[in-house]
Amino acid sequence: MDKHNCTLYSSGLKGAEATFGEEAEKIGVKEVVYSFEGHKLSREKNVIVLSQDELERGDISMELASRMLNRTYYETDKIRKVLQTIFHMVNSGHQVFVVGSIQEDGSVKGGTGWAVELAKMFNRPLHVFDQPQKKWFTWRAGSWQEDSPKIEYDTFVGSGTRYLSDAGREAIGRLFADSFPE
Rank of each mutant, 00 (worst) to 15 (best):
T161A: 00
D53C: 13
S179G: 07
Q145R: 06
R174L: 11
G110Y: 01
V96E: 05
L55S: 11
I60Q: 15
S42V: 00
D77E: 14
S143G: 08
T155C: 13
V82A: 04
A24N: 01
G158P: 07
D130V: 08
S66G: 13
A119V: 02
S10F: 03
S179R: 07
V99P: 02
G168W: 00
F97E: 10
K81C: 02
E17K: 00
V96W: 01
V29K: 01
H4D: 09
D53G: 12
S42P: 06
K40S: 07
Q131P: 10
K81W: 02
M89W: 02
Q95R: 09
V99Y: 04
S35I: 02
K26P: 02
V29H: 00
L64W: 13
R67V: 10
H88F: 06
G111K: 08
F180L: 14
W136T: 11
V98H: 00
Q52H: 11
D77W: 12
T155Q: 12
R71I: 01
D147T: 14
A24E: 03
Q133R: 08
Y74G: 08
S148M: 13
S92T: 01
G21M: 05
W114F: 07
R80G: 02
Y73H: 05
W139S: 09
L13Q: 05
D178I: 13
V47T: 12
T85N: 11
V98P: 02
V47D: 12
C6W: 10
T161I: 03
V32Y: 07
E56H: 15
G158N: 11
R174A: 12
Q52E: 15
Q145D: 05
S179C: 08
G160Y: 00
A24D: 05
F156R: 11
A18L: 03
E117A: 10
R57Q: 15
Y73T: 00
L8P: 08
K45L: 09
A24Q: 03
K78V: 08
T85H: 06
W114R: 04
T72N: 11
V90A: 08
H94I: 12
I86P: 01
L64Y: 13
S107M: 13
D130K: 08
K134N: 14
M121D: 15
S159T: 11
V157A: 04
L69Y: 08
G111F: 06
F97N: 03
R162V: 00
F137G: 07
W114A: 02
G142D: 07
D154L: 13
V157F: 01
E152N: 15
R80A: 07
R71P: 00
P149N: 08
V90W: 04
K135A: 09
S35K: 04
M121H: 14
K81H: 03
V82R: 01
V96S: 04
N123M: 12
D2T: 04
F156G: 12
R71V: 02
E25P: 00
Y153W: 15
H4K: 14
H127L: 15
G160Q: 09
E152I: 15
K30F: 06
K134L: 09
L69E: 04
V90D: 04
F156V: 12
Q95N: 09
P125V: 10
L50S: 09
N91T: 11
H4M: 06
R80Q: 04
I172V: 03
Y74D: 06
G110C: 11
E63Y: 14
R124N: 12
A115E: 14
E54D: 13
E117G: 05
E182V: 15
